[in-house]
C-alpha cells in the first residue's frame, strides 16, 4: 500500500538517539517495552498493520534502538486506531497502544509528524475544539478537517451530509459546556506539565522523511 516510504537501509550510530527509549518509556508502565521479545503478536493482531510503513513490532525495536526520527515521522503511530488488540494479547503485557500515543505526542511536540496527513490534523482540530468549548462539535470538526486537508472531498461528502442532516444526526451548531471558565482553570494548571505548552505552540508538521 501507498504509505511506505523509501529509506536508506543503513543507520549510523550518529543518526540514533539512545535516550529516545527512555523518553517513551517514561509513561506509566512504559518500561515494560524493554521486555519485548519481538514475537510479532502485536502486528499479527493489528487490523491496520498492513497499511503501516513499519509494523507495530518494528516500532518497539526502533524505539529500543533509538530510531527517533524514523518512529516520530512514521505513519504507523498515526494509523493506530487504538483498538488495544496488541496490548491485550502481548505476551509481555506491553501497553503498545499507550506507547503509540506517547510517540504521537512527542511527534507533535517536535513537529515531525507526517505533513498534510489528515490524522494529526484531526487530532489538532479535535483538541482545539474541546479546549475551547469543553465539547466536540462533530459537524464543525469534520468540516474543518476537510477544509484543511482536501477541500475537494467536501463535494464527495455532500450526499452523506445531507442524509445525516435529514435524519437529525448532523448539525453545524457549536456545542459547548456552560462553565467553560471552570474547565479552563483546570486545564491551565496542567499547561506547564503538558508537552505542548498551548495550542498556539502546536508545531506545524514537516514532510516526513525530509
Amino acid at each position: 500500500m501507498g504509505y511506505a516510504k523509501h529509506r536508506g537501509k543503513i543507520r549510523f550510530e550518529s543518526d540514533l538517539e539512545p535516550d529516545f527509549s527512555k523518553e517513551i518509556s517514561s509513561i506509566p508502565e512504559g518500561e515494560q517495552l524493554f521486555s519485548c521479545i519481538q514475537c510479532g503478536t502485536c502486528s499479527g493482531m493489528c487490523p491496520l498493520s498492513q497499511y503501516m510503513d513499519y509494523t507495530p513490532r518494528q516500532i518497539i525495536a526502533m524505539i529500543r534502538g533509538g530510531f527517533k526520527n524514523d518512529v516520530l515521522s512514521s505513519y504507523t503511530t498515526w494509523l493506530c486506531a487504538s483498538c488495544y488488540s496488541c496490548a491485550v494479547e502481548c505476551p509481555k503485557e506491553i501497553k503498545l497502544t499507550d506507547i503509540m500515543y506517547a510517540a504521537k505526542r512527542l511527534a507533535i511536540r517536535e513537529g515531525v509528524y507526517p505533513k498534510r496527513f489528515p490524522i494529526p490534523i484531526l487530532a489538532h482540530e479535535f483538541f482545539k475544539n474541546v479546549d475551547d468549548s469543553g465539547r466536540n462539535s462533530e459537524g464543525r470538526l469534520i468540516l474543518r478537517l476537510l477544509l484543511r486537508t482536501n477541500p475537494l472531498r467536501l463535494f464527495n461528502q455532500a450526499g452523506l451530509g445531507w442524509r445525516l442532516l435529514k435524519t437529525g444526526r448532523f448539525s453545524l451548531k457549536k456545542e459547548s459546556i456552560v462553565h467553560k471558565g471552570e474547565l479552563k482553570n483546570i486545564l491551565k494548571v496542567l499547561e506547564k506539565e503538558h508537552m505542548v505548552k498551548s495550542k498556539e505552540e502546536l508545531a506545524p508538521g514537516r514532510e516526513a522523511g525530509s
Binding site: Q38, C39, G40, C42, S43, G44, S49, Y54, T55, R57
Partner: peptide, 10 residues
C-alpha cells in the same frame, strides 16, 4: 495469522 518478523509483513 502471524507476522513474519524476519520480513516485517503480516
Amino acid at each position: 495469522r502471524a507476522e513474519d518478523t524476519l520480513v516485517g509483513v503480516v
